[in-house]
Write a protein that binds this DNA or RNA. Structure first.
Lengths: 333, 333
DNA sequence: CCTTCGCGTCGAAGCGCTTCGATGACCTGC
DNA sequence: GCAGGTCATCGAAGCGCTTCGACGCGAAGG
C-alpha cells in the first residue's frame, strides 16, 4: 500500500496539484465546487501531507521544541501539567512538539534550529544566569522562556507572578489577624542555582508582611520527612508566637502537615497553613489546604500562544506575568 | 545569513554534492583525504543537514514519537524518568523525540505515521484492552509498547516483570519469618481500567505468598492521607497478626508510614514495610524503605533500543521483561 | 465592440537531500 | 600490453510539497 501523495489526490479530483495545495492551505481563492471535490478526494483517499516535503518547500516544520530541565528539585506534577498543556495547545495550532532535555544543552538548541527541525523553542525553568540565554539571542530563532533570566531584554518570558503569589499568602494571613508568620521554601539547592521563582516568592512574601507590619521569616526547606520535621520543630521553637505558615515546596507540603501533627499543633486551630502548589495536591491533603495555585496549564497555553504569534511575525510583549489565585480551604482561619 | 546547505559544503571542499552526502552517511567508501577535506568544510561552515530535506529524500525522519498517557493516577516521577531516558537514548541513536499525549488518541497516531513525521512509535502505559492496539497492528508502523495489552501477539512489549516484583516482596518477607502479610496497591480506578501492571503485581505477590504458606491479602489503596490512614487501620484491625506490608503505590507510600506512626506501630519493629517504587522515594522516607525499584531508565533505554532495531529491520523478541531488584533498607527485618 | 480586470486554475521551478548508475583512473594477472 | 576488476567520485533523477507567474474566461467599463 503505497502512501497517498498530493498528486494522487489531484488526479482523483481531476485538478492540478497546485490546486489541491491551495485548497488545503487556503492561500488562494478556490471555487466552492472545486474545493469540495478536492476535500472529498482527500477524505476518500485518506491523504495526509508528507511532513518532510511540506517543511522543505514551505520552510515551516510545524513543530516546536519543548526544552525541559528534568533535573533535581523540580516539581514533577507541575512540569507534567505544563507539558500536557503545551502539547494540547500546540495541536490546536496544528503544530507538534519535540521533546528535548536540557542536558543536550546549547548545542542541542543549535542543532534543532539549524536543521530546521523545529520552527521555535519553548524553554522551561530558565535560571537567572542561564547559559542558554546568550545563545538564544544569537540564534534569532523564535523562542519563549518560562521563567525570567537576569536580563530579559529582547526575549519573551512568561511566568506566574511569584512575587504576587508570596504577597497574596502574606495578605491572606494578615487579614485573618496573624501577627507572626513564616515561609518554608524550596530546597536550598534551588536558591543556590539562582532559580528566579523561588527567590521572587520569598521577596514578595517578606515585602507584603513588612507592609502589614507582621513579623515574617522565610527559609529554604529540604524534602525528606526528617528534615521537614526538624525544620518545622526549629521554627516553632524559635518563634513560639508563630501562627501562620506558608509552604512553597510541593514535596514537603505533606510532610509539614505530618510534622505539625506530631508536634501537637492542630491545623488550622493552632497554626494556619497556606500552600503554593497545584490544586489537586491542596485538595488531597488533610485538612484540605488553602492554596495559591501554580497555573501550569495557563502558563503552557500562554507560552504556546506567544510563540505562535512570534512565528506569525507579530510583535509580542517582552514579559507576561500570570496573576496567581488564592483558594481558601480548611487549613487557614 | 542564509543557512548553509550541502551544496555550499561541496563547493567549499571542491567536491560533488553526492560526495559530501556519502562522507556524512558513510554509505560509500571515500578516500581519507577527501573525507577530511569535507569534514573540515562542514565544521568551518557550521553545516547542519536540513531535517525536512533529509526526511523527504531518505524516507527516514530520525524522529520517534513518545506517546504519554498523562492521565489521573499515573506515577509522575517515574514517567518523567522514563521520558528522560527515552530522549537520552534516542539521541544516542541520532534520533529526536516527538511528544504526544494520549488524548490525541488513535487519530493522532495515524496522523504522525501517515505524514511520515516519525519513523516509529513508543507507547506508554498500555492497557489490557487498549483501543490503540488494533490500530497499531493496522498501521504497520514500527512500534514498541511499554506494558502489555491482553494479546501481545505480533507486537513488541517491554515492561518490568511486575509479577516477579510482587513475588520478590513476598519472598523477602517470608525469609524474614513473617507469617501474615498484605499488599496495598494502586487506587481502585487503576484496576478498573485494567492496567496490567497493577494486577500482575498482586497476582505475583499472592502466588508467592501461597507458595510460602503465608496468609496474604492484597487490596487497592487510594492516595489521600485520610483514605490511606483508614485503609491501614482497617487492615490492622482485621488482621491483628499482620507483620509485613507491601506498598505498591508511590503517592501512598509516605502516608502509609505516617498512618503506622499515628496508629502506634513502629517500623520495622512491629511491622516490616516493603515498597515498590523508585529508589529516591524509598531513600527519602524515614525509615528508609526496603524496596523493589521500578527501573524506569532501563525500561526507557530498552524500549528505544528495541525500536531502533525494528527500524533497522531486525527481528526483536515479542516480549521483554526486566528483572526487578530488591534493595534492603531499614524498614524491614 | 473592444479593452481591462479579477477570479479560478494550471504548469513548472525549486526546496535540500539521498541514491543509483556511470565514469575514469588505477591496478592486477596472463 | 590489454581485458577485467576495484575504488573514488560525479551527475542527475527524484522525494512530495509550496509558490510564483501565466493564462483563459466572463464581467465590467468606456
Amino acid at each position: 500500500m503505497r502512501t497517498v501523495t498530493i498528486a494522487d489526490v489531484a488526479k482523483h479530483a481531476g485538478v492540478a496539484v497546485s490546486t489541491v495545495s491551495y485548497v488545503l492551505s487556503g492561500k488562494r481563492a478556490i471555487s466552492a465546487a472545486t474545493r469540495q471535490r478536492v476535500l472529498d478526494s482527500v477524505r476518500e483517499l485518506g491523504y495526509h501531507p508528507n511532513a518532510g516535503a511540506r517543511a522543505l518547500a514551505s520552510k515551516r516544520a510545524k513543530v516546536i521544541a519543548l526544552v525541559l530541565p528534568l533535573r533535581a528539585g523540580m516539581n514533577l506534577p507541575v512540569l507534567m501539567q505544563f507539558a500536557t498543556s503545551v502539547v494540547t495547545t500546540a495541536r490546536q495550532y496544528d503544530h507538534d512538539v519535540l521533546l528535548m532535555t536540557a542536558d543536550e544543552g546549547a548545542d542541542g538548541l543549535h542543532r534543532v534550529a539549524a536543521s530546521a527541525l523545529v520552527d521555535g523553542l519553548l524553554l522551561m525553568d530558565v535560571e537567572i544566569h542561564d547559559p542558554r540565554v546568550p545563545l538564544l539571542r544569537k540564534l534569532a530563532e523564535p523562542s519563549v522562556l518560562i521563567g525570567f533570566p537576569a536580563d530579559p531584554e529582547g526575549l519573551t518570558c512568561v511566568d506566574l507572578d511569584f512575587a504576587r503569589a508570596g504577597a497574596l499568602c502574606a495578605d491572606h494571613l494578615a487579614e485573618l489577624g496573624h501577627r507572626e508568620i513564616a515561609l518554608l521554601g524550596a530546597p536550598r539547592v534551588v536558591y543556590e542555582r539562582g532559580t528566579g521563582f523561588a527567590e521572587r516568592t520569598m521577596a514578595g512574601f517578606v515585602e507584603a508582611a513588612r507592609r502589614h507590619g507582621l513579623q515574617a521569616d522565610a527559609r529554604p526547606c529540604e524534602e525528606s520527612f526528617d528534615e521537614v520535621h526538624a525544620a518545622v520543630k526549629l521554627l516553632l521553637d524559635e518563634r513560639p508566637g508563630l501562627s501562620g505558615l506558608v509552604v512553597h515546596n510541593e514535596a514537603a507540603t505533606g510532610h509539614v502537615l505530618g510534622a505539625l501533627r506530631i508536634l501537637g499543633r492542630r491545623v488550622p486551630e493552632d497554626v494556619s497553613v497556606v500552600a503554593i502548589c497545584p490544586d489537586d495536591i491542596a485538595e488531597r491533603a488533610s485538612p484540605a489546604l488553602t492554596s495559591v495555585l501554580i497555573p501550569a496549564e495557563d502558563v503552557g497555553r500562554q507560552a504556546v500562544r506567544l510563540l505562535m504569534a512570534k512565528l506569525e511575525g507579530q510583535a509580542v510583549p517582552e514579559s507576561t506575568l500570570l496573576e496567581p489565585r488564592l483558594t481558601i480551604r480548611e487549613s487557614s482561619r
